[in-house]
Amino acid sequence: MTIRALEKVSVGQNGVGAFILQCKRMDIHYCDYSGSSRGMNAFIKSQLAKFASTHPQIEFAVSPRPRKHPVLTGHYINGKHKSICVKNMDSLQILKKAELLRDASGEKIRKVNKPITSITESVRGVWSPYHGKGMAV
């Protein structure tokens, strides 16, 4: 037996095969009394039910947070969470923020300075029309 096997684990890429929405839970905090929550209360009354029914993948938790500004918090599959203070915003602005949290992957925001991120790195990089001999037209 001259061949031995090394143990490796397969690597998954979200969206190849199946897509899993990375936001798994959204916490919605409001205050009944203070004015900074006026938009949030309108959002909860008018738009949250529709938003939640179109996103059954996300668990929504609405809870009061008296005498504090309203906050939206998204919890992600990688264990991180993202909070946005939505004080004094109107309900449409809050809806935009909720969509932002829904679309986020939960990763830290970092600068991407390579054109391609891959698990099978190319040796040569991306082809460029401006280098080499050029393209005959």
Binding site: A5, L6, K8, S10, G12, Q13, V16, G17, A18
Partner: peptide
Amino acid sequence: SRQLDLANLF
């Protein structure tokens, strides 16, 4: 659908 490079197992 997950990726496993079999060439690395040898």
